[in-house]
């Protein structure tokens, strides 16, 4: 997978998380996965289709999900959430929207044309994700609330 595809996601995730949650964000070491990989518990997934195709996953534990949603809500003067309820899921969806929105604008400016699907939120225990004939690049982001893994699998359409 070309690094041009992943950098905009990493930059936007860093910018949006820092800006919205008002916390320090550390970017971890990037790694590549081919086989099925375990997921942490809560994931927002966004599909891409066009000149490039694939998907982006924002993966975190349930506990981190609740903390991140609460952090985003309180930074905007709204009440935090106690559980992964409808409001928490809507908040994480919006966070994924913000990050992909900014990343996609960067990719469009580089000349890649494609559309996005609205984010879907997955929750559950012992889930794993596999992409046939796709390599996935994972960028961990460390926050005081826990870790968010940005998992990008994109390729050029044949």
């Amino acid at each position: 997978m070309r690094v041009e595809y992943i950098n905009p996601f990493v930059e936007s995730a860093y910018n949006i998380l820092t800006e919205v949650l008002k916390v320090e964000v550390q970017r971890g070491e990037l790694y590549l996965k081919n086989a099925a990989m375990p997921m942490l518990g809560v994931a927002a997934i966004i599909g891409l289709a066009g000149d490039v195709e694939g998907r982006v996953l924002f993966d975190m534990t349930r506990e981190t999900g609740i903390k991140v949603a609460s952090g985003m809500l309180t930074s905007m003067d709204m009440d935090p959430v106690e559980d992964l309820n409808e409001m928490a899921r809507a908040t994480l969806t919006e966070l994924a929207n913000m990050i992909t929105g900014q990343a996609v604008t960067k990719l469009h400016n580089l000349g890649f044309k494609f559309d996005l699907t609205p984010p879907a939120i997955f929750t559950g225990e012992n889930m794993s994700v596999s992409d046939s004939n796709f390599e996935a690049l994972i960028v961990p982001m460390d926050l005081p609330m826990g870790k968010i893994e940005i998992n990008v699998a994109i390729r050029e359409r044949a």
């Binding site: 905007m76 003067d77 709204m78 409808e86 409001m87 809507a90 908040t91 969806t93 919006e94 929207n97």
Partner: peptide, 15 residues
Amino acid sequence: DSMFVTKQIGQILTS
């Protein structure tokens, strides 16, 4: 369609 955005706009405006 986002409950989050509805609540956010609502909060800003009612304040």
